[in-house]
Simulated scan of single mutants.
Amino acid sequence: MPQDLEFKLPPVTCKEDGEPRRVGIELEFTGLTLEQTAAAVQEALGGELSRTSASERVLQVDGLGTFNIELDWDFLKRQALKAEEEDEGGAQWMDLLSQAASLVVPLEVVCPPIAIGELHRLHRMVDGLRRAGAVGTENSPLAAFGVHLNPEIPRLEAATIGAYLRAFGLLQWWLVDAHRVDLSRKISPYIDLYPEDYVKLLVEQAPPAMGQLFDDYLEHNATRNRALDLLPLLAQIDGERVRQTVVDPKIKARPTFHYRLPNCQIEKADWSLAGSWNLWWLVEQLASREDELQALGAAFVEHWRPLLGLNRGAWLEYVGRWLNDRGWG
């Protein structure tokens, strides 16, 4: 059975309206056809399965919500839809490409937002996909398969956003090591870390008002390709301001973080989604403790070298000891 089966509860489990915080999870992998994937998820969770297009299936599960199951290749999806609309044998054309996709094109299961205390219900889905033959990051040098976590923010305000930014910025290099991020993902542009200068700005300035937070983030991170992508969250607050800086139709406004570091190692018996979540949990822990944030921020500045920037090797060692001293590592 996988280790870390328990999803750790963060310090803040409810939003300011009293409703439980939820997490959306996106799981990327290969090794199966679209139909095999949909069948495995339905067998694990039950529910009613429907076909929305040649490249997408939808599963409605009572008590959880809507699971979208799709081939994660925009060109493939566009061509299949066009063939269907023009009655040019889209289904047959798609079936052939779906077989090829099991080798090179990621499949994606996009889970509905699920209360943190209910995330354990996804274990059956992961086990079912593993038994069906799903394989993850390490089995394809061509696609940087991963797990995306989309936890709802507790409070949609500058102070809370700033605390999470500082927490992740200070931990980001350590998290890459802790997740053992695969080389194919490290060299991809999709999970770039925040620039060192931006992290230094975060820890040295006073907590910014929302306007300054927008200015600083968009100046240093005007791209979706970040390990912690805040553009969906910022778009929820002011979509027009985000679009003025970043022209990308894939940015979807939502009151969540978009954390993209974890590998998908679904083929391994000792891997689980809980392991990925429990490393993000460290960001939750640190973000909720202003005194600890200030202490680690001060240590970060001490590890900064004029002209050379952060001494990353020494910083990684320091963060590891610091987390262990608090029983978090």
Rank of each mutant, 00 (worst) to 15 (best):
L34D: 03
E35Y: 07
Q36D: 01
T37D: 02
A38P: 12
A39F: 01
A39G: 01
A39H: 02
A39T: 04
A40T: 02
V41F: 01
V41I: 11
V41K: 01
Q42K: 04
Q42I: 01
E43W: 02
E43C: 03
A44Q: 09
L45I: 05
G46A: 12
G47E: 04
G47Y: 02
G47N: 07
G47C: 08
G47H: 05
E48F: 07
E48V: 15
L49V: 14
L49Q: 08
S50L: 06
S50F: 07
S50P: 10
R51C: 04
R51W: 02
T52A: 05
S53P: 11
S55D: 12
E56F: 03
E56L: 09
R57W: 02
R57D: 04
V58F: 10
L59W: 02
Q60T: 14
Q60Y: 08
V61Q: 05
V61T: 13
V61D: 04
D62Y: 03
G63H: 05
G63N: 08
L64P: 15
T66A: 06
T66E: 12
F67V: 13
N68G: 13
N68W: 14
I69L: 15
L71T: 05
D72C: 05
W73L: 11
D74W: 06
F75R: 13
F75G: 08
K77G: 07
R78A: 07
R78L: 10
Q79L: 09
Q79P: 10
A80Q: 12
L81A: 11
L81D: 11
K82I: 12
K82P: 07
A83S: 09
E84G: 10
E84C: 12
E84A: 13
E85Q: 15
E86N: 14
E86L: 13
E86K: 14
E86G: 09
G89S: 06
G89P: 14
G90K: 09
G90R: 11
A91I: 10
Q92P: 06
W93E: 00
W93G: 00
M94N: 06
D95F: 00
D95G: 00
L96I: 00
L97I: 00
L97M: 02
L97F: 05
